[in-house]
Design a protein around this nucleic acid. Structure first.
Length: 834
RNA sequence: GCGAGGGUGGCGGAACUGGUAGACGCCCAGGACUUAAAAUCCUGUGAGGGAAACCUCGUGCGGGUUCGAUUCCCGCCCCUCGCACCA
């Protein structure tokens, strides 16, 4: 019997899949489609276990869907623009292009060794002009739609990466990529008006309730941060100026006892001119500006403020209240100014107590006590208005609405909505990215590159500076152009686009990756989109997934796409950890996928990864667990090799014994029970670990059956032979999404033409699931005391009688009164005694 | 602080709708095969008690509902993730 030899088997089948282009797909409206996508990788050098897990989960699903009769689009490509390429090139005195392509080559080989079912004809790399020209095209289309603008603003600047970062790319004040501190800097750059889509991006989350994890939806909703409220104008006393504030609690307007401006607010500086406060204010502004941004914006940070020397008038009650400036009010949210209602806002409360500012209760507390001196903390709950003139007694939404209506009628304010989401800064001051298709002309100003001139090629002959400054800025051949409008000498924009733009629509491109007329063809995108199942890490919960949804909505508005959302189902896979920590070079706990494949083969690696934990949970790497996976495949192989000769016999015997009939029926039941279990675990629960456990139990059963059979027969019957063949075929097919190479080999040797993924997924038959005899648990007062084997069709009364007569049960019921008997059909009977 | 998820043997995990807790696998122990080892196969494997049959306890902690709770409810502890002065 030949040993299980994964090396030979895997090489053989990988070669065959490649030669036959087994996973190539075409648009085929006659067939139901299934678009399965794993987040495409950045070509960083080598595949790591996180990739392996991601692709293995996807591949198991893809193969399952093939077998279920779907036309499966399962593509792969490379997110190949980005800074690591540049940094590595600087270090190695090489070129990002060289480095990137070398990595793609290595990683392609590694991925192929995993036996993944990709349509390699659709492979794309975002650093190729054929791809990034459509980034430029999108930029220009967005520009036409008024969704792109250029502004000079305070931006997040990473000193280490030497470039600007979008808000989403700053994590706890640090750069998402390199973990270095982010500073603010005044810089001119391009922005995408993602805020125009804030409401739609928020509302769209509702369509994803079924398909997306709640966690991701919540994170996006928080990030968008919608709040409804009102804008109110407060007139400044003895001045023509007024201060506009945003509040979510217009119902507390009568409780505003002071106002606070952000130190950066233009009025902070201008209003204090000529007052006694002038120097104090200037010192304060300087001080706050120098304050660490994280410290300033973190809750519990000390609230510092200064009186500006001026007063404003509460437009509702005409009261004169002081205007302050303080560090806890931020210029980039709302209007950069607030009305302070200390009784009903905990920040205002803290500030008022610290600076001895008046506090007035205007929402009636449950105990009715409106003495602010008794207040221990701000009362932020909704309630009936009080001390609020004509509005007294109104509460909640009605109160807010009535106040808003009043403000509007007096033209001193209006109901409005605020978002936390900021526009997406897409300019990057680096080289290895998509050039922004813009030309600056002395006469015509900012001129878009005409579509016919796309792509604006990223020059590959650029020499990188050693600190990461973009060489484009000094590359004359790139910069100097003629203005497309007036033909006068002009300069090219040297910023490149954020690489998140590449990943915001690559899934669209996969539907027609070689189209050189459009970013994607309408026919293909209508057929394939949305992505039915998207799989990737939770770390992209906001960044990539929000940007992609934004792009999708814009494309949709352009009439290019029908689907409401780009990804109908999202699976966020858990991390791969070892010794309790994320695998990392610095911890020295990295397991190289190549070594595992070399030692055990891809099937073992895949099987272990899927078996060790459900996809969404973190996975603890275990060398012994891998060994276990290998042992299981060897066991399958031995069962197959040891039993396959049985099919060569011409059946003569009849195996008619009663025991044989029972065993055979039990085998048949196991086949169908296993099909049901594995199918539902994959399809309904995406829980591959229990699916594999089911297959393992099936193998255990098959082994025992075969051994018994061989010990009890000299001449296998046709019936036995057929049933056993059905069992083996079923086993092979159920196993094939998880361990495809070994499955293909066995499938072929069983004499089937074609590959396993072309075969139909086994169907179970409800009638074969039922056993003749079932085990019933008998409890006395909720404790298991006996297990009875009874005919499946037994009626309740006989079951009760049989249980009560059972000697073991009588030991527990003797001398006691039977209060009641609960029967759970086909499961359990509970006798309550006293 | 707010929101979400989680806490089950020595370990990874299972128990899907309130119905046998610990499926499946790993580790470990004993046995078979072998000159020996590896591989493989068999048996055992939550804790405590008992020669055994079997009994008691047991799903983070404390309570509750129920014939019956890992599952539902109340209170608490711990861990992970996200948000966090957003007016």
């Amino acid at each position: 019997m030949p040993d299980y030899d994964p090396k030979t088997i895997e090489a053989k089948w990988q070669q065959r899949w490649e030669e036959e282009k087994s996973f190539k797909v075409e648009d085929d409206p006659a067939k139901p489609k299934y678009y399965l996508l794993e987040m495409f990788p950045y070509p960083s050098g080598r595949i790591h276990m996180g990739h392996v897990r991601n692709y293995t989960i996807g591949d198991a699903l893809a193969r399952f869907k093939w077998m279920k009769g779907f036309n499966v689009l399962h593509p792969i490509g490379w997110d190949s623009f980005g800074m690591p390429a540049e940094n590595a090139a600087i270090q190695n005195k090489s070129h990002p292009d060289t480095w990137t392509h070398a990595n793609i080559k290595t990683m392609t080989e590694q991925i192929k060794r995993l036996g993944l079912s990709y349509d390699w004809d659709r492979e794309i790399a975002t650093c190729e002009p054929e791809y990034y020209r459509w980034n430029q095209w999108s930029f220009l289309k967005f520009l036409e739609r008024g969704l792109v603008y250029r502004k000079n603003s305070e931006v997040n600047w990473c000193e280490s990466c030497n470039t600007v970062l979008a808000n989403e790319q700053v994590v706890d004040g640090l750069c998402w990529r390199c973990d270095n501190e982010v500073v603010t800097k005044l810089q001119e750059g391009w922005f995408f008006k993602i805020t125009d889509y804030a409401d739609r991006l928020l509302e769209g989350l509702q369509d994803l309730e079924q398909g997306w994890p709640e966690q991701v939806r919540t994170m996006q909703a928080n990030w968008i941060g919608k709040s409804t409220g009102a804008e109110v104008d407060f007139q400044i006393k003895d001045s023509k100026e007024s201060i506009k504030v945003f509040t979510t609690r217009p119902d507390t307007l009568y409780g505003a006892t002071f106002m606070v401006l952000a130190p950066e607010h233009p009025l902070t500086h201008s209003l204090s001119r000529g007052t006694q406060q002038e120097t104090e204010i200037d010192t304060f502004i300087k001080k706050v500006k120098s304050q660490d941004k994280i410290a300033r914006t973190s809750e519990g940070g000390e609230k510092l403020g200064v009186f500006t020397g001026v007063h404003a008038v509460n437009p509702l009650n005409g009261e004169t209240i002081p205007v302050w400036t303080a560090n806890f009010v931020l210029m980039d949210y709302g209007t950069g100014a607030i009305m302070s209602v200390p009784a009903h806002d905990h920040r205002d409360f803290e500030f008022a107590r610290k600076y001895k500012l008046p506090i007035r209760i205007v929402i009636l507390p449950p105990d009715g006590n409106t003495n602010a001196d008794d207040l221990q903390e701000a009362m932020t709950e909704l309630g009936p208005m009080t001390q609020s003139g004509a509005f007294d007694g109104l509460a909640g939404d009605e109160a807010r609405q009535k106040v808003c209506e009043h403000l509007q009628s007096k033209k001193i304010g209006q109901a409005t909505v605020q978002f936390r989401l900021r526009d997406w800064g897409v300019s990057r001051q680096r080289y290895w990215g998509t050039p922004v298709p813009i030309i600056f002309c002395g006469k015509c100003g900012t001129v878009p590159v005409p579509y016919k001139d796309l792509p604006v090629l990223l020059p590959l002959d650029a020499q990188l500076g050693d600190k990461g400054q973009s060489p484009l800025k000094s590359l004359d051949s790139f910069i100097n152009v003629k203005c497309p409008k007036c033909k006068a000498p002009a300069k090219r924009e040297t910023d490149t686009l954020d690489t998140f733009i590449c990943s915001s629509w690559y899934f669209d491109r996969f539907t027609s990756p070689h189209n050189d007329q459009e970013p994607f063809s309408k026919k293909s995108i209508r057929y394939w989109m949305p992505v039915d199942q998207y799989i990737g890490g939770i770390e992209h919960a906001i960044l990539h997934l929000l940007y992609s949804r934004f792009f999708h909505q814009v494309f949709r508005d352009m009439g290019l796409i029908d689907a409401k959302e780009p990804f109908s189902h999202l699976l966020t896979q858990g991390m791969v950890i070892k010794d309790g920590a994320k695998m990392s070079k610095s911890k020295g706990n990295v397991v190289d996928p190549d070594n595992i494949i070399k030692k055990y083969g891809a099937d073992t690696a895949r099987l272990f990864i899927l078996f060790a934990a459900p996809p969404t949970k973190q996975l603890e790497w275990s060398d012994q667990g891998v060994e276990g996976g290998f042992k299981f495949l060897k066991r399958v192989w031995r069962l197959f090799e040891g039993s396959k000769n049985i099919f060569d016999y011409k059946p003569v015997g009849d195996d008619t014994g009663a025991e044989f009939q029972i065993k055979l029926k039990e085998l048949q039941r196991m086949i169908h029970v296993t099909i049901k279990r594995v199918t539902e675990d994959i399809e309904k629960r995406m829980q591959f670990n229990t699916a594999i456990a089911g297959i393992m139990e099936f193998v255990n059963h098959l082994q025992k059956f075969f051994e018994w059979w061989m010990n009890h027969t000299h001449d296998p019957s046709a019936k036995g032979q057929a049933m056993f063949k059905e069992a083996m075929d079923t086993l092979i097919l159920l196993l094939s999404p998880f361990a495809p190479h070994i499955a293909e080999e066995m499938w072929e040797q069983m004499g089937h033409p074609g590959t396993t993924h072309q075969a139909a997924w086994p169907e179970y038959n409800e009638t074969f699931l039922k056993a003749d005899e079932i085990e019933i648990v008998v409890q006395v007062n909720g404790k298991v005391r006996q297990k009875l084997s009874v005919p499946a069709g037994i009626d309740e009364e006989s079951l009760k009688a049989q249980s009560l007569e059972d000697p073991r049960i009588q030991e527990w019921t003797n001398g006691k009164e039977v209060k009641k008997v609960i029967v759970v059909p086909k499961k359990l009977i509970n006798i309550v005694v006293k």
